[in-house]
């Protein structure tokens, strides 16, 4: 079946199976590499993308449900995006595998609460796992981006 959605502002039209996830088709057919499969069950956040502005696990969203939506990924952010800059300045990454998802989740948090408390940051990002354990600096990065 065909699904049409906007990907980082550009219209795309993809042929998908009804039981495929947005993550599968973004990676296979749309050239997206920043959203990554890690847990496959929506608990790790490595595949976080924005769907109509809301952070979503691309691995849990069946592709047909993205029809008509605005999908945004880390590819759509530039190096000068304030959250990206803040992550660079705070050295808030190690292996980098979770980082784009973390940044996407952080942009959504800051869009909703421009000056979040530490508790809010923790609550909003708790579902984005970083096994390298860069959390101290990720907290710092989000604080910086909010400032």
């Amino acid at each position: 079946m065909r699904v049409r959605f906007a990907l980082n502002g550009e219209p795309v039209e993809l042929d998908v199976r009804a039981d495929e996830t947005l993550l599968t088709v973004l990676r296979r057919d749309a050239g997206i590499l920043s959203a990554r499969e890690s847990c496959g069950i929506g608990v790790c956040g490595a595949c976080t993308v924005l769907v109509d502005g809301r952070p979503t696990s691309a691995c849990l969203l069946l592709a047909p449900l993205a029809d008509g939506a605005e999908v945004a990924t880390a590819e759509g952010l530039g190096p000068d995006h304030p959250v990206v800059r803040a992550f660079a300045e705070a050295h808030a990454f190690q292996c980098g595998f979770c980082t784009p998802g973390m940044i996407v989740a952080a942009t959504a948090l800051l869009a909703e609460s421009p000056s979040p408390s530490d508790a809010q940051i923790r609550h909003a990002l708790a579902g984005n796992l970083c096994r390298c354990g860069s959390y101290v600096k990720i907290l710092e990065a989000v604080r910086r981006a909010a400032a």
Binding site: L33, S34, A35, R36, T73, A74, E75, L77, G78, P79, V84, F87, A88, F93, G96, F97, T99, P100, I103
Partner: peptide
């Protein structure tokens, strides 16, 4: 592996090769 490529998700890990 530049900082920018890590942050914006451009790194190609083994799983992406």
């Amino acid at each position: 592996m530049s900082r920018e490529s890590i942050l914006l998700g451009r790194v190609r890990y083994s799983q992406d090769r």
